[in-house]
Amino acid sequence: MILELKGVTKKFGGVTAINNTTFTVNSKEIYGLIGPNGAGKTTMFNIITGNYQATDGEVVFRSEKLNGLKPHTIVRKGIARTFQNIRLFKTMSVMDNVLIGFDFQANYTYFESIFRFPRFFGEEKRIRKRAIEILDYFGIAEFAEHKATDLSYGQQRKVEIARALATNPAMLLLDEPAAGMNPAETKELAHLIRTAREDFDLTVLLIEHDMKFVNQLCDKVLVLDYGKTIFEGKPSDAIKDKEVVAAYLGDFAHD
């Protein structure tokens, strides 16, 4: 068990975005968070990453309570994320986008960078080499010096995941990674996530609408509906569950 949510509730004024949700994610699992729009999935991510504070309940990661920690601290503990709508640094190159992921891992001080101490060169060389390795892994090394936002949508998704992996996470949070992708790109992405789990020793928590994608990829799913948990278990069983089908108003019927 790597991540545990215990009775997490999040209220925005009168709206209860998440209502007393409890679940655990095991090491190296690919865990899906599904549910209709507005179900509270992204909010759940934001609570885990520290962007929002839970109104009630606890988030425990590797036996450590995360409540109250700053988002940049939580990243350093090993939880990285991507965003529902791609958020790359738009004036920066693909390489620099990925290098931001190494920000807290490059060991040189502000002073050493101003006066170009040897440690600056050594550390920059080290993180650049690793950044190229990650870009290579995603097959986008040739675009390293391109402006990130000049790439195709599918490639930008890859840059975003590469950037998250650069933080050297134990757990990766993907918010609708397949959104806006064509079937071929979706298939490639599923493959990539599965192999990345092995190669980077990852646990993956992902939000997705595409049930085919979830079915192929996830070991386990949690279905949310208006902040309430209505199902937890194997994805293949989720499709058969009456409540789940009702929540989706037959969205799964054709799958």
Binding site: P71, H72, A80, R87, A164
Partner: peptide, 10 residues
């Protein structure tokens, strides 16, 4: 460029 994304990178 994007403060939230920067925070999300640590």
């Amino acid at each position: 460029d994007d403060e939230d994304a920067a925070i999300a990178m640590g």
